[in-house]
Design a binder for these strands. Sequence first.
DNA 1: TTTGTATATTGCAATATTACGATTAATAAT
DNA 2: ATTATTAATCGTAATATTGCAATATACAAA
Lengths: 109, 109
Amino acid sequence: MGLIKSEIFTDEQNELALFAKAFGHPARVAILQHLFKINSCVCGDLVHEIGLAQPTISQHLKELKNLGLIKGNIEGTSVCYCIDSKNWSGMKETMFEFLNQDTAKENCC
Amino acid sequence: MGLIKSEIFTDEQNELALFAKAFGHPARVAILQHLFKINSCVCGDLVHEIGLAQPTISQHLKELKNLGLIKGNIEGTSVCYCIDSKNWSGMKETMFEFLNQDTAKENCC
DNA sequence: TTTGTATATTGCAATATTACGATTAATAAT
DNA sequence: ATTATTAATCGTAATATTGCAATATACAAA
């Protein structure tokens, strides 16, 4: 199959999984870290910085963009990609809620 | 290819991606939420709770166990799975550092 | 208009993931 | 000993992901 049965899970579970999946590849982690580091970016830099072929980087950027975590502004012949702060904050909220489930719990084993 | 080029990324980037990938499937999200909720669990409950076949749940549990996020104690004929609090905290630290990169940054676009 | 530069898209091969039926292993109950 | 119960493993089909070469697109510069 290879097909996730999304219909049996809640919207929250599916949303969180989609966000997490975005971070589930080291290239996308590296892209986001680089975008934060220089606070503005063109794709060309990323190809050089990360060491994957241009189509591959472009594909990863597209995924992050579709999720809303980054946005791209065309500037002449190149594209300025950067973090979408508002959406990043929203995503963080979702992740924090999930990650902090352990507070106020005792261990059983 | 379908093969991640881990060797071109840092250990931190690869580790974070592995943790994130664990949350990148709604079934594993649901499993972890359920484990937190009842604070102790046997696999059978999860099969009933989540609605996937027993081998599928077992496989997801194995992945979470391999990552160290949960541990399983055999109790008679069933297995008691629960969160590994220590490792969960460590994972949280890693994720928080990544998610909080945006603090102390100004927007560019 | 041609040439160069930067990014996106297409097509494809290789590998990974998801899901489950069938089976196995291990213990509990009778 | 036999049977029932629970969970792991095996095998396999279907789908997804990763990565890149080739190509297309879009704009700038000459």
